[in-house]
């Protein structure tokens, strides 16, 4: 049974040390998990070691067990690393914060930092792409803690601005990713155009694992305005008078929007995770890692 989630997003965003935040999140996330869900490509046998609970049974040498009556697992020299490229939407819409004061961008920052910490911590490579209408920051996938520091600095310094153009950012990420790897997209997915979906399909087709973290706030979901308000679009600046009369229609359309993305990702074998900014971050991350470890996607 998973431990109770204690990592309140509001608390985490109050901590300025992003590395500490990432470590705390990852520690809380991995607590109770048997294995890391990220597997490097290994080829060359290195040595045996005693089986430890949590080791993958496929590495158990059953012949040796038959001879010695002891369980050993085989270890290999890693010849290649898993390359994880985290693609973060930093458009103005991501600056929207819910009642708990945590913006989607802040949440995405911690989520990305945690993933990077987790990946680099186990010897895999991780990079980051920050984009709005264009790619604003690019760090290629690298290993090592020095690179993790650079990556965390890049995450800490990113600011929300501009409109969203996920298709071009994803196309750039695919082009820059020379090897097959894992593409993690963290966005509110408001630019729901054909180009973006086409790039997602292309990424899957050329062999990338693709994971989409759909981040939004509870306010976007519930539209809790029972009185009339002038809503101002964070990206376009357009204003609309809205209120309780528009709420029901909005909720229905937003639900359809979420459902469309879920169906679209599932049909393209893309891992889709819906995250709200008031949910404990470790719980959200744990759900994803468990699915990935089990080889399933929702």
């Amino acid at each position: 049974m998973a431990p109770p989630s204690t990592l309140d997003p509001a608390l985490l965003t109050a901590i300025s040390d992003l590395e500490l935040v990432a470590r705390v999140t990852v520690d809380g996330t991995l607590s109770g998990l048997h294995t890391s869900p990220f597997h490097g490509y290994s080829a060359e046998f290195s040595q045996y070691r005693h089986y430890r609970p949590g080791d993958d049974l496929k590495y158990v040498d059953w012949k040796l067990y038959a001879r010695t009556d002891r369980v050993y697992t085989k270890q290999y020299c890693e010849t290649t690393n898993l390359g994880v490229q985290i693609i973060i939407d930093a458009s103005r819409s991501m600056a929207f914060a819910g009642r708990n004061g945590v913006s989607k961008l802040q949440y995405a920052r911690i989520l990305a930092a945690s993933l990077a910490h987790l990946t680099i911590g186990q010897g895999d490579a991780s990079g980051v792409i920050v984009y709005d209408e264009a790619v604003r920051h690019y760090l290629p996938s690298r290993v090592g803690h020095a690179h993790l520091r650079r990556l965390l600095v890049a995450l800490a310094s990113m600011q929300a601005g501009g409109t969203t153009s996920s298709a071009s950012a994803l196309k750039r990420a695919i082009d820059l990713q020379s090897r097959r790897g894992l593409l993690v997209i963290i966005s509110d997915l408001y630019d729901e155009d054909e180009g973006f979906e086409r790039e997602l399909r292309r990424a899957v087709r050329i062999g990338h694992d693709v994971a989409v973290f759909h981040v939004f706030t509870r306010e976007e979901l519930e539209f809790p305005y029972d009185r009339d308000v002038q809503l101002e679009d964070l990206e376009s600046g357009q204003t609309i008078l809205a209120g309780a009369a528009t709420a029901a229609e909005y909720r229905r359309e937003f639900a359809d929007f979420v459902g469309r993305w879920r169906a679209r990702c599932t049909s393209n074998r893309i891992d889709y995770t819906r995250i709200m900014t008031d949910e404990p971050l470790d719980a959200a991350l744990r759900g994803y890692l468990l699915r990935r470890g089990g080889g399933t996607s929702s």
């Binding site: 819409s93 991501m94 929207f96 989607k104 509110d188 408001y190 939004f216 706030t217 976007e220 305005y225 009185r227 009339d228 308000v229 002038q230 809503l231 101002e232 679009d233 964070l234 990206e235 376009s236 357009q238 204003t239 609309i240 008078l241 209120g243």
Partner: peptide, 9 residues
Amino acid sequence: ADRIPFPSL
């Protein structure tokens, strides 16, 4: 009506 920023309209 109050003016409230919103991610997308």
